[in-house]
Each structure stands twice: as structure tokens, then as C-alpha cells.
Design a protein around this nucleic acid. Structure first.
Length: 517
DNA sequence: CGTGTTTGACCAGCGC
DNA sequence: GCGCTGGTCAAACACG
């Protein structure tokens, strides 16, 4: 027995060394990419998503649908690098390596996203909120204010404030570590769920209005449901920006009218789940009924976006492939979904960089994967774009449908910066925010990007180009990814993309383990 | 002693 | 109006 352990230790050390080297290379590559990105970005005109959001908010306010952004894992894909240019290859390798680092959610970051924090990256809205002098008004006050103002003014700010982002992720720890500091101010057992719901408020800044609710899923105790509400009115820790940007983007997307109320069904929690080549969007009609959402006591439930990082399939996939590819992963699958596993088994499947996005402590339940590759002609339904194109939803196979899908995706991505933001942010949150550079940048550039076509491997994703608030998210260049220790590897030495080290202390509830040797 | 958590009480909204 | 429920407050408590 001891011998075996020593061997394991040895191999772990070796792997760790490899990782260190790899990390160095990744960092170098990343910095170089970042420079490139900024060069490009400087030439980009300011984004106008905020304007779009404004224009659409009025309409949204009435609908207030719940949009579920499910970041589930999709099926894996094979390594298929063929066809990529040398640059693509380099980037893909970079991406692959970086993704291979694995998000270490162990403490809670899976996505706790939300911190609604998003707001942090949402400079415009932060300012607005600050201007309103709202320094963390009690919810009661907020409710009162909402009610009193409802008919009078500023539906948009109101709505924006009320927008919530819910993150579902497997997490063994009491809370997910989202890089922010939280103080628990209450706990309550909600009806229908034996697990108590904990209430937290952001303590990074005394006046920060951001709150979050944490609750275990009654159906699956391993799933932690974190709901963020509010906007941070202070600079966020680097580690929290990804989550914040995710939630912000999601909220922005929600508020900007990307939802499709026409497909909603009041009877079903999930009115429609759509797969978009690995991107599955579920639109909920009512937060109350949403299985992923915390119950809302009010009928006027705020619009909520749910990021589901618990896709069952993904788990299967992760389990399988993490064993098969302990170190070199193959698929990057960005999966916004939790429902249909097979729909996009091969979506975007080139080069896979497997992103193991799960708590270290729960090695067998990785939470997410990023997959970019060639879309395969599979059934696709995408409520988000249903208004413009419903054909894709019904078409099952055939080249025509693929083309249609490609066109549709292109349109959607190019026409809705919010969606881009959401995707970018979601990805960034999974990748730790600073590993993704090019893909979304390209997407933002012209729908799919100058060098990127649907079907080509995506080299990276940049959330820096988040258009929603004209306040491009700034990546953490200086952040260094902690080296995962082999012993922490979830499965068979598979790597998890570790989140950057947090400049802020973690909440007590979230465990922090030394990831280094 | 400062900070964070626990927990019962309180309040507001909603449905009946 | 009443009861239920969700959300918050705040005193007591725990911990470093």
C-alpha cells in the first residue's frame, strides 16, 4: 500500500511539474494573446448593448420571463484539429492547455456567479445605482420602492435591479466561492425544500447592495443553487469578476429582450429548452415554477437567469472522458443546458479542450465543459432566436439544416451583443475569466469573427469585449492560476481549471485547500 | 474585541 | 381579514 501511494505521489509530482511548465507557457501565450486582443479592441467602437437593453427593457418588464442559461456539459467530442490554421492551432492549443487547468470550484465558485456581481463589471449600472444613492437598501425598501415606482418611472433601472441570476452547480461546500466576501444575515427553510436557504450580502463594500441566496436543490443535494441579486457598487476582486460578468451579462441578456415569451408555458417549469450546438437555453415562464430557481414569494418575481452547471450528461461525459483523457482533454463544449444531452453530442467538436468544472471534492461530478468545434447537423431548437427562425428547431438532420443553423447562429450572435456577452461571460466564468481571448472577440467583431466560422474551432473567448456596458471587462493578466495538485485532480489525474487565487479572503463556509504541493 | 454566524422575531406580499 | 411564505433584522453567540 505505501508503495503504491509513493508511486502515486511520484506521478502526481511529475504531473505537477508538467503542469507548471504548461502553465508558464500558457501564461506567456495568454499575455501575447491579450496584447493582440487589446490592439484589436482599441479599434473597436464602443458597444451599444446598453442602448439596446434600454430600448428593450420596457417590453421586458412586462414579460419578465425567466431565462435559464444552462451551462451543462454536453457530450464529448473527439479531437479533431484538422482544418485549423496554424494560428488556430496555436490558439487552440493555448485554449486547450488553459482549459486543461481546470476550474477549481472547490470552494464555491462554480459559479456563484452572480454575484450579480456582474454588476461589478457593469459600470454604467453601478453608476446609476450610485447616483440613486441606493446603498444597500433593504429588500423591503426595495420592494416598496419598486412598487411605488412601478408605474412612474425608470422601468429599466428597476428591472435591471431586480434581475437575478441563478447558478446551479454541483458543490460539496456550503457555498460556492465566487471571489466575493459574503456575510450571512439570515437563514430560512423554504417551503418545498427541506434544505434551508441562506441569505448573504456582499461585504466587500459596506454599502454594496448585492445579496445572494444559497440553497441546496431538494432533488439533488449535491447541487447548490445560488441566486444573486443586485449590483456591486465597488471594484470586485479579480476572482469575482468572472462570475460577476456572467451574471451581469445574463441579466443584460434577459433584460434586453432575448427571451421568448411566446414559447412559454405556465404549466411547465421549463417551457422550452433549446440546444444551440452545445448551447442550450431554457426559458422559464415564471421563476416560481422554475425548478432551478428558488421559489419566489411574489408573483412579480424578478426576471431570473439560471446558469445550470450541472448538466447530467455533462457529468456522464466528464466522468467518462476524464478517465479516458486524464490529462489531455478533447472537447470544449460550451453547454448551456441541462436537459437534452444528445442533441449536440458533437456540436462544436473540434479540438476539444475538456473543461472540468467541478469541485475537487466531487471528482466524479464535473460540472461543465467547454466545447467549440464544428457544429453538427443535429436537432436544434433555440427559443432565443425562435422569432427569427424556427426552422432549425424542427429540422433534424441534413446539411440544409446545418447551414440554416449556422446562419441563424451567425445572425443571433452578430445581432445580439447581449447574447454574446452572456456566452462570453459564461464561458469566462467557467474558464476563470482570463483564459479566453479570441473567440468572443471575433464573435463581436462581426458575428463570427474575421477568422472564425462556425465549424471552425474557436480559439478563445474574450469577455473583454462584453458590449453591454461599454465597460469592457478587464481580464486579470496578473492573476496566476494556482497549480492544481495531482492529488486534487478530480479523476485519474485530470486537471481542473483553477480559479485565480483570490485576493480576498474566502468566506468561512467555503473551503480553501492548498492547491499547490 | 472585532467579525461573522445563528436564530427567533418581525414585516410585507400574496392567495384564499 | 387571515394565514402562509419569503425576506430581513438584530440580539445572542461563537470564533480567532
Amino acid at each position: 500500500m505505501p508503495i503504491i501511494q509513493e508511486d502515486e505521489l511520484e506521478s502526481a509530482k511529475e504531473e505537477n511539474e508538467r503542469l507548471k511548465k504548461m502553465l508558464e507557457q500558457v501564461e506567456n501565450d495568454y499575455q501575447s494573446l491579450q496584447r493582440r486582443f487589446f490592439n484589436i479592441f482599441q479599434h473597436e467602437p464602443p458597444l451599444k448593448s446598453a442602448q439596446k437593453s434600454l430600448s428593450n427593457d420596457t417590453q421586458k418588464e412586462e414579460e419578465e420571463p425567466e431565462v435559464s442559461l444552462c451551462l451543462g456539459l454536453q457530450t464529448p467530442t473527439k479531437h479533431d484539429n484538422t482544418g485549423s490554421s496554424s494560428k488556430d492551432k496555436v490558439d487552440a492549443e493555448l485554449m486547450e492547455e488553459q482549459l486543461s487547468l481546470g476550474l477549481d470550484l472547490k470552494s464555491s465558485s462554480k459559479v456563484d456567479l452572480t454575484e450579480t456581481g456582474s454588476e461589478k463589471s457593469d459600470g454604467i449600472e453601478d453608476i446609476r445605482e450610485d447616483e440613486l444613492g441606493e446603498t444597500w437598501p433593504p429588500s423591503k425598501v426595495l420592494k416598496t420602492m419598486k412598487k411605488s415606482r412601478k408605474d412612474e418611472e425608470l422601468p429599466e433601472p428597476n428591472n435591471a435591479k431586480r434581475a437575478r441570476v441563478c447558478v446551479r452547480a454541483r458543490c460539496d461546500t456550503p457555498t460556492m466561492n465566487d471571489g466575493c466576501q459574503w456575510r450571512k444575515y439570515g437563514q430560512k427553510t423554504a417551503k418545498g425544500n427541506p434544505c434551508p436557504r441562506a441569505y448573504y450580502r456582499c461585504t466587500v463594500a459596506p454599502s454594496c447592495p448585492v445579496r445572494k441566496q444559497v440553497q441546496r436543490c431538494s432533488e439533488d443535494m449535491s447541487i447548490l443553487i445560488t441566486t444573486y441579486e443586485g449590483r456591486h457598487n465597488h471594484p470586485l476582486p479579480a476572482a469575482a469578476t468572472a462570475m460577476a460578468s456572467t451574471t451581469s451579462a445574463a441579466a443584460s441578456m434577459l433584460l434586453s429582450g432575448s427571451s421568448t415569451s411566446e414559447v412559454l408555458s405556465s404549466s411547465a417549469p421549463i417551457a422550452s429548452t433549446t440546444n444551440l450546438n452545445g448551447l442550450n437555453f431554457t426559458v422559464h415562464n415564471n421563476a416560481k415554477t422554475g425548478q432551478f430557481n428558488l421559489p419566489s414569494s411574489s408573483s412579480a418575481a424578478p426576471p431570473t437567469i439560471t446558469l445550470d452547471l450541472t448538466g447530467p450528461h455533462s457529468s456522464h461525459f466528464n466522468r467518462r472522458f476524464s478517465n479516458i483523457f486524464p490529462f489531455k482533454y478533447s472537447s470544449r463544449s460550451l453547454n448551456f443546458s441541462s436537459s437534452d444531452a444528445n442533441t449536440f453530442a458533437n456540436a462544436w467538436n473540434n479540438h476539444s479542450t475538456y473543461l472540468n468544472y467541478g469541485p475537487l471534492s466531487a471528482p466524479k461530478t464535473p460540472i461543465g465543459s467547454l466545447s467549440f468545434g464544428k457544429p453538427t447537423p443535429q436537432q436544434i431548437s433555440y427559443p432565443y432566436m425562435e422569432r427569427t427562425n424556427q426552422v432549425a428547431a424542427s429540422s433534424s438532420s441534413s446539411f440544409a439544416s446545418q447551414q440554416l443553423l449556422t446562419e441563424t447562429l451567425t445572425k443571433v450572435l452578430s445581432s445580439d451583443p447581449s447574447f454574446q456577452s452572456a456566452v462570453a461571460a459564461a464561458i469566462s466564468s467557467m474558464v476563470g475569466g482570463n483564459n479566453t481571448l479570441n473567440a468572443m472577440n471575433q464573435v463581436n467583431a462581426n458575428g463570427l469573427g474575421p477568422n472564425l466560422k462556425w465549424g471552425d474551432p474557436v480559439q478563445g473567448i474574450s469577455i473583454n469585449s462584453l458590449p453591454q456596458n461599454g465597460n469592457p471587462y478587464t481580464p486579470r493578466y496578473s492573476n496566476k492560476l494556482p497549480l492544481p495538485s495531482a492529488s486534487n485532480s478530480p479523476v485519474g489525474g485530470s486537471l481542473m481549471l483553477l480559479q485565480p487565487q483570490f485576493p480576498f479572503s474566502l468566506s468561512k463556509s467555503s473551503s480553501t485547500s492548498d492547491l499547490r504541493d
